[in-house]
Nucleic acid binder design. Structure first.
Lengths: 137, 137
DNA sequence: TATACGACCTCTAGTCACTATAGCTTCAAG
DNA sequence: CTTGAAGCTATAGTGACTAGAGGTCGTATA
């Protein structure tokens, strides 16, 4: 049996975050001490480690909830898990693509400002007038 | 003089968003009609277009506020504007780097799941056990 | 001039995934 | 038995909006 602090140390998830996960029904303590403090078991650690790992990979909590449901039953078809992961990958790639467009435009804007006064500043002029941009965003 | 809807149409910023920007002091209407409806002028359009453009490039509203302050006075040194833009660029690049690490790991996890049941699912096993991962995240 | 209808108004609450604070109680070591 | 760390609940705040309720205004037409 582990206290919430122990669980936190073993998984790297902060104590308030663990309580938050419990409040939204993502995890459950296996009971309480006489003085109303949460107690967790080995399963609690595994489940929280799973969540942490999935969060680190960028999965939203809703997706993690679905993945946890799937892994609770080893007989479930896992096509759904594959789909969720594929979706997350596609989402991540889309974000990268968007950010790369922004970075390119920012670089064009942010480098080589001729003026040293705001009046002629590249950055400010580019932001004020969309026509200074190369691509759409 | 433009109504809020007209301003919205001319800048592509949604009406509730315009009201939100006003509520946080990012823009101001130049007055109200007899019936208490907002009225904007040409300057309002320019300022909102500036904001929209900066948001499209990923600048947070706080940075945009600072950029607007700078562009309000053409005599201000523009080193600060350059700094803000450079910071935004650095931030964007950092995000890209992180997302690329995640995408690589997701791809490794999400492709080629051998099993068709959750019990042997690649995705679920990788999430359950960090040791299945190639790199840190 | 009456009326219809779209556009406008304010205010509140919800989104996501936490984080912070306040004020209190419990646990474990000495 | 005392002390101090760790635990508890509840509430509010973050960023940048978005959605909804319930009411008012402006203007074109009949």
């Amino acid at each position: 049996m582990y206290s919430i602090g122990e669980l936190s140390r073993r998984t790297g998830v902060k104590v308030p975050t663990i309580r938050y996960y419990e409040s939204i029904g993502l995890i459950a303590s296996c009971g309480r001490s006489a003085g109303n403090q949460r107690r967790f078991d080995r399963q609690g650690i595994d489940r929280l480690a799973f969540i942490r790992h999935a969060r680190a990979l960028g999965f939203p909590l809703d997706a993690i909830r679905a993945l946890l449901d799937l892994s609770d039953d080893p007989e479930t078809p896992c096509a759904e898990a594959d789909r969720i992961a594929a979706e997350q990958l596609a989402d991540t790639r889309a974000r990268i693509a968007r950010l790369e467009r922004l970075a390119a435009e920012l670089e064009r804007i942010a480098t080589g400002c001729a003026s040293d006064r705001a009046g002629g500043c590249n950055v400010l002029q580019a932001l004020a007038d969309h026509r200074h941009c190369a691509g759409p965003h």
